[in-house]
Design a protein around this nucleic acid. Structure first.
Lengths: 143, 143
DNA sequence: TTTCCACTTAAAGTTCGCTCTATGTTTATG
DNA sequence: CATAAACATAGAGCGAACTTTAAGTGGAAA
């Protein structure tokens, strides 16, 4: 299956501008061009873009994604390095997940706090609520 | 308890520069200044900065955090709006968490793929592995 | 054929969140 | 009392990832 840049953009929720920018940055090494100069994407390019989005979404910078591409193009001698790269990325993702859990607890505290405040019509009442105070102590620690 | 900008920076893993920048942007409305002009932080300012980091970490831009501050300063009439803001932020965080789960699956696939490739010494072998192919199909979908 | 749409390049511009520089004042230490 | 550390302001600079602009090409529909 062949795709134009516009079709790929739509499929992946990016803009054609962004895809051209990625290409310029060397992130799309296997995308070919037709006689008119238009880029022609295939299914493997889509798969590749999904991995790019995955690495980007887990916090990798474009220049480091580029380095991964360079490893891929060097062939089988870089397999172990590439494996290590994904293991590292997994560790980073796990850290981010743990961080998000902590953010979630704080947001849940805030929701409980404001729910109480809205019910009572004032923030002052919340400050007397022992349960909320204990939760705040737990989440924000002793100073 | 009182803190200087340097102590707060250390406590929260930020720089004094960043804290001054936040102040300039109006993100630290309750920080006072001493006779020499030096900022004086207290425990509530620390709590507040923890919430700022939480909102920032869950994807809120500084200008939108500023809007939340403005709501806080308008008093109890904005309590419902503030509650809604945190509920919205919770939904966004849940979406991000779900997104991260999907990234994790793709990364796990890549780890399995490269583990196999390293064991066999070549990527070509992986493409014949039915199990990996099925997983790829599941994660990357039909095109 | 004309008109329109999607594509092209090259380069400048934008936004975000800092980060650094220059210059100066205050405070703590030996 | 001198010096060094930590604070201050104002404003310039930076890196990342786009985003937009300008000017043009190619191919299909009316």
């Amino acid at each position: 299956m062949r795709y134009t840049i516009g079709q790929v953009a739509k499929k992946l929720g990016l803009t054609a501008h962004t895809l051209r920018y990625y290409d310029k940055e060397g992130l799309l090494p296997s995308v070919k061009k037709g006689s008119s100069g238009a880029r022609i994407f295939n299914d493997e390019d889509i798969d590749w873009l999904i991995i790019v989005e995955c690495l980007k979404g887990t916090g990798m910078q474009l220049k480091d994604i580029k380095k991964y591409i360079d490893l891929c193009q060097k062939g089988d001698s870089t397999l172990a390095t590439r494996l290590e790269l994904f293991k590292q990325q997994k560790r980073q993702l796990e850290e981010k997940l743990a961080q998000f859990q902590q953010y979630m607890e704080k947001i849940n505290y805030k929701i409980a706090y404001y729910t109480e405040a809205v019910a009572k019509g004032s923030v002052d009442v919340c400050k007397q609520n022992k349960c909320l105070a204990a939760e705040k102590e737990r989440l924000f620690g002793h100073k």
